[in-house]
Nucleic acid binder design. Structure first.
Length: 427
DNA sequence: TTTAGTTGACC
DNA sequence: GTTATGC
DNA sequence: GCATAACGGTCAACTAAA
């Protein structure tokens, strides 16, 4: 029997009620066990506040403003009560529930009405994401209205939370990985690895559900499926970071640009942003650079895209931003704001994952396959001198805006000081 | 055709 | 990206 | 101590309204 959205809402109510992480994991794990193969990916993503898998390019394009109009239409929305509830909980979803509980809907809801299933909610959300072009707003609103009028106040609360992307239940992706591991009695490390290479924890849950531990062990990088990135952590000082690494550290300059993940196979190239958005179309010259330089058959590399002005200095980040996600006037802007790529890591090469390889090894392989593409500049000092010699503060300088006006704001320049990425696989 | 409002995304 | 907060 | 939630500033796309 398909799981109801009500069951998911009730689980999240229990999760929200506690701050104890072990309890959250326990309750979530027990709930995951009750789900079927066809709904577990949707449910898992909804629980962590996503309508779709992390790697998915779909967006709902719905937020609080749209929801407000809808609630005004389907019920007598008590704004004083809403404000009061917002003040006490600070949570839009909770406030919505409070209001809906105390207001009578305009339309009579049938007591015998069949309750929403998780799969139905996903299907409607697909349709909402699909609605584009003229009349899209109306269509989205109609679909949301249909969903909301079938929902109880508690369900509406979590629909709102998913729409706005603000869950505030304490059940975040890290805990969900633990819950999945516990529910299916598989090693946490396996789950975490699969979550990284598959780019989505919901997909991991579905894989285990249908293929068991065996399926999990088979999970590996797949070209054109964006990978969950390893994020850097900041330290108070260079010495603190060096200590964290336990003796062996590599230092590189961190460029104030945009991080990209580049996939290539059989001549096809795709570029993803930090949040796994496909930005290939916006960056034609980066595609060209990769095409001309990286000859490997299949590859996943990471780099930083920055823009240099005519004098060879990097421009301020806000100018660079105008290139990303742009779909109009790309070639014109490409002339005004030309982009440069610096590579800093390689995750996958010709069918082999490289993340278990030490940093030195990966860097070596990267330099061999990069062609003329520069790598991020490494530190060249000896360890004893590192702390003293490596730049620890931003270089500040004046820059010119693209329109020629001189800006008064100093910008973060070429070197931003040390940032030492703690590599979970190779500390 | 222009302007305003909304949304999402990057650091 | 930075800062605040709760285990 | 650690991980995450919550926040800020800026920009472009998109749809609806003027």
């Amino acid at each position: 029997m398909p799981a109801t959205f009500k069951s998911l809402s009730e689980l999240l109510e229990k999760v929200e009620a506690t701050k104890k992480r072990l309890k959250i994991i326990d309750q979530t794990a027990n709930y995951l066990k009750t789900l079927g193969a066809e709904e577990i990916e949707s449910a898992t993503n909804m629980m962590v506040g996503r309508a779709f898998p992390k790697y998915s390019q779909k967006t709902l394009d719905v937020s609080w403003s749209t929801l407000t109009r809808i609630f005004e239409r389907i019920s007598v929305f008590d704004w004083d009560l809403f404000r009061e509830a917002m003040a006490s909980t600070g949570d839009i979803g909770s406030a919505t529930k409070t209001v809906l509980e105390q207001t009578k809907p305009k339309k009579q809801t049938q007591l015998t009405q069949k309750s929403l299933t998780i799969t139905e909610v996903r299907t409607t959300m697909e349709a909402i994401a699909q609605a584009q072009g003229s009349g899209a707003r109306t269509k989205k609103e109609r679909l949301i209205t249909a969903l909301m009028s079938q929902a109880t106040p508690v369900e509406a609360k979590y629909l709102v939370k998913i729409f706005t992307g603000e869950m505030r239940t304490g059940l975040h992706e890290g805990l969900m990985e633990q819950a999945v591991a516990q529910a299916f009695d598989v090693p946490l490390q396996r789950v975490q690895h699969a979550s990284m290479v598959l780019g989505d924890i919901g997909e991991v849950a579905a894989t285990i559900k249908t293929q068991g531990l065996e399926g999990l062990e088979k999970a590996g990088f797949s070209v054109f499926r964006p990978v969950k990135l390893m994020l850097a952590q900041t330290a108070q000082s260079v010495n603190e970071a060096l200590a964290e690494h336990g003796g062996k550290s590599a230092l590189e300059y961190k460029y104030d640009g945009a991080r990209v993940q580049i996939h290539k196979q059989n001549g096809r190239i795709e570029i993803f942003s930090r949040r796994l958005t496909d930005v290939t179309e916006s960056l034609p010259e980066i595609v060209k650079i990769v095409e001309q330089n990286i000859l490997a058959q299949s590859i996943i590399v990471e780099g930083e895209v920055i823009s240099l002005d005519s004098a060879g200095y990097p421009i301020a980040f806000q100018h660079l931003m105008r290139r990303f996600r742009r779909v109009h006037g790309i070639s014109g802007m490409a002339e005004k704001i030309p982009l440069t790529l610096y590579l800093f890591d390689i995750l996958y090469l010709n069918g082999e994952s490289l993340i278990a390889q030490p940093y030195i090894q990966r860097r070596q392989i990267l330099s061999q396959i990069a062609g003329e593409i520069p790598l991020t500049k490494p530190n060249s000092h000896r360890p004893a001198q590192t702390s003293r010699r490596f730049p620890q503060r931003s270089h500040r300088r004046w820059t010119r805006r693209l329109d020629g006006e001189k800006t008064r704001q100093p910008i973060r320049a070429w070197t931003q000081g040390q940032t030492l990425a703690k590599n979970q696989n190779n500390p």
